[in-house]
Design a protein around this nucleic acid. Structure first.
Lengths: 200, 200
DNA sequence: CCTAATGTGTCACTCAGTGCCAACTAGGTA
DNA sequence: TACCTAGTTGGCACTGAGTGACACATTAGG
């Protein structure tokens, strides 16, 4: 049985984590130096003295080296959303959850800016990121549907999905402007401005 | 000079169009039969008696065979938006433009459903489609910014981008639900429901 | 008819990603 | 100790998208 959910964490598990971290570290350095597309898996592999094949055992795709945490962020967001008061209106709850997510990130503003810039510069990275964000939607919709008052109506799903999708769009717009201004504009304020414009 | 914008349309231009159409026809047949990922460029090439290399001269990527028109749709949308009365509020104008775009599509509902289903089934297709949609945004933002009353404010751009992004998100949600219901629910109604929920 | 531009197929290449196999290693058992 | 099993690793060969170079054909236009 593979029941271990993180308790004693045998040697195998520990080395796996260590190698994983080493890969991410080396890869990110190369990505930021030469760009994402210009860096090959071969380079990353030889950089840490392993084989191309092994890289693919740790990360299914090149993009996952960068976006590995992104799926987890969805769960953080979900938890933050569900921790909000049950009758808080959708937009407020989503706003609070997103704010909490941003604050939970372990990056310095400097690093976050560099990484986000890279993300925006590479089409394939943007694509994967969007893909993962779509999965966030699935996690958040049930909570929002609850807040809207559960109706079996197929349109109830539309309402919840639209709210989540638009909240994420607003956050994306805010982030984009923040990146393009090189961190000048306030992201939180931009988000609020975006929401205000949408709600007309 | 390459000034010809479609007037006499010499033999070269005509054959090019014809071959292009032939490629799309054959490719779409194969895609719908066996799925997008399962069909190789080699197959498509030999299907119409040409070489793999030539396919790439007509379409830069495999995805473009399906999404070739998608960029043009952006221009249709832009034109439709700009044709709306100058003081019509953003949401109404966007709604009208999107409606006009959908009505301009040459597909039967049957075909449109099949194609859209395929689009949703293939990750790489979804990714490219989203990429192209992002370019739509660039086309629409200026008009919306105008409707919001031009301010040099960097936040003015945020407001316009947010509106466009959310309108596209709502249309995406509506389309998605429409596909999943296999054409049962009314797409236009779903869109309105989405917008209403977002505007709270 | 001649020539400059354009289209075509072939070949060779890069790179991401996958399946397979043989060698090794950790961890528990007799 | 010796042994067994399961997971890890590297190497190899393969697919499939996409690109560059080249030689050869076709066409437009003077």
């Amino acid at each position: 049985m593979n029941d271990r959910e993180g308790r004693p964490a045998g040697l195998r598990e520990r080395t796996r984590r260590a190698v994983q971290a080493e890969i991410v570290e080396a890869a990110m350095r190369l990505f930021l130096e030469q760009g994402f597309e210009a860096t090959t898996m071969e380079q990353i592999a030889s950089e840490i003295g392993t084989s191309r094949r092994s890289l693919f055992r740790y990360f299914g795709t090149k993009e996952d080296i960068v976006l590995g945490d992104h799926a987890d962020h969805g769960k953080v967001l979900q938890a933050a959303l569900e921790a909000r008061p049950a009758h808080e209106p959708p937009w407020e709850a989503l706003r609070a959850a997103l704010k909490q997510l941003v604050e939970s990130l372990p990056y310095s503003p400097r690093d976050f800016l560099k990484i986000t810039s890279m993300l925006h510069a590479s089409p394939s990275l943007r694509a994967r990121q969007h893909e993962k964000r779509q999965q966030w939607t699935e996690l958040l919709v049930p909570d929002i549907a609850r807040r809207l008052g559960a109706a079996a109506d197929p349109m109830a799903e539309v309402r919840a999905r639209a709210l989540v999708a638009c909240a994420l769009s607003c956050s994306e717009v805010a982030t984009e402007v923040w990146v393009r201004s090189e961190g000048t504009v306030d992201m939180e304020q931009a988000f609020d401005e975006a929401v205000a414009a949408v709600r007309g």
